[in-house]
Design a protein around this nucleic acid. Sequence first.
RNA 1: CGGGGCGUGGCGCAGUUUGGUAGCGCGUCUGCUUUGGGAGCAGAAGGUCAGCGGUUCAAAUCCGCUCGCCCCGACCA
Length: 581
Amino acid sequence: MRMSQLVGRRYKERPAEATLESHAFLLRGGYARQVANGIYSLLPPGLRVAAKIERIIREEMDRIGGQEILMPVVLTRELWEESGRYADVGPELARFKDRGGRDLLLAMTHEEAVVHLCRDEITSYKQLPAMVYQIQTKFRDEPRSRGGLIRVREFTMKDAYSFHQTQADLDAYYEECAEAYRRIFARCGMPETVKIQSDTGMMGGKVAHEFMLLCDAGEDTIVACDGCGYLANLEVAEGRIAPLPEEPAPLEKVHTPGKRTIDEVAEFLGVPPERTAKVVFYDSDSEGRPVMALVRGDVEMNETKLAKIIQAMPEMADDATIRSVGAEPGFASPMEIDKDKCRIIVDHTLAGAGNLVCGANEPDYHYRNFNLERDLPGTETVDIATVREGDGCPNCDGSLELKRGIEVGNIFQLGRKYTESMAMTYLEENGEEAYPIMGCYGIGVGRLLSSVMEVKRDKFGPIWPISIAPWQVQVNAIGLDNEEVRAAAEKLAGDLSAAGLEVLFDDRDERPGVQFADADLLGVPYRLIVSPRNLKQGQIEWKRRDTGETGFIEPDEAVETAQRWIADGLAAIDAVADQAG
RNA sequence: CGGGGCGUGGCGCAGUUUGGUAGCGCGUCUGCUUUGGGAGCAGAAGGUCAGCGGUUCAAAUCCGCUCGCCCCGACCA
């Protein structure tokens, strides 16, 4: 590629809307342009990187038996009604009508489409297991997109779907897929990506993991054990929160005028927040009952965990709802509550804590010395607590740390949620009809591209791993009005291209500073420089983007040398990918 | 959806308080001089000042409405 013809300008200054470094480089380097909030066009350098990431993904999906297919972006209401998601999913699903008034939608994920396709094609146990995948556009009308390509509304995603006869077979394949993911991220130059336990969200199913790139720009909070390697998303992480046992003292009603919040009450009564019980009302569980949830005062409610228990989205209840079950807002107590009208869910932190302060269901009054076992006997406790930095690891005696991460991929065990609801059956060996068990596996291509940019960079621009660099080698010609330089640079670029290398040739008669700054923004790993100075020595100068090392070679060694660099670079990345697993 | 900020040539910004018919830097084009980390000089092109409506002799500037973008929160397979 000749730089003089490359479409997409580079900016010297940082665009105002960029917050993340990767976002700034995306715009400054001419990789992508925003069309609307969360909707981007890719320019040649951006598309070239994306295409290389996609190629790696294809190779690794094919390696575990995947077959590439392509499903439509536009699907029908009827199809999504089969699974029940047309009603379940909110406004993030873009819906529209065709000219005939038929309800259509833009797919945000393709479980319905893949089951629609495969239920007619896979009808025998002899065809199982099977995995199909696609690399296709998705649209999710996110309430708020941000961060360049990290969180967008329209994006390219690799999504894969597997079908199995047995849970054991899915379990085994799930691990194979996790291993393929580890290889994909390593081959994209990010072997530091980690697999963590995660929530299953709207996908349904029980087992799910996310692949996280740990970095400060990440939107997710990850809980990590310093002792045993336990890793989980904060949404699902479990922790050991130290109990606070105490010999039960008699229940005592105390006057607490106007003291509603945990902090106010704790301060007023002179007790630490961990000696209080926090009550939060939600509206409502899957049967429509209001929910009263309790955690210890120093612990945050985990609404993801709660959602699983009540089988519904927890939404804060209003005061009228709270009063309707006989509780007093700000002074609510689990005692004296009609359990038929209100579901009471108690976190395990309350079980181990004695003599807590809790509401008295009466304005301006609290109780001292609430003890769960004594005052609410027979109450079952569950885990609805949010893990905190320093809490104990659930698996060892280490302690937990909180870190930030970008989710670059995820894997789910879906079970039979979609095959049952959409009536996908096959015949078993014994002639009986059965529903296949599904897994699904996603990777966001643009997000992965941005993530690499976020982590592999210096202050001048991205430092692309050779495996996904937009070009493999760059030729810079300095002083192009010098005929000798022009001829030598043209020959060098031509020879490299003829040898099959991906060459970016800066054939503009620009000053060195301009050329080098642009080269840094494009992040090509290896640079060859032709100039009058070097030519006088009969040499070509080289520079590595990553280490900054420089040196000289003879012109007739250039092609061979560049080939060796690239081969060595790729081999080093592959060696990391081949490790472990 | 709540709170906040901002919309002025491709990019970064000033001008808005106090209304007078649009400016700076970068970039682009032409010429000359330059050539190892974003050159110098001379000339040039490019803007319905987000849009609509209002006030006024006169609106980027004042008033109203709408739209868009960014940030925080809610939300997020």
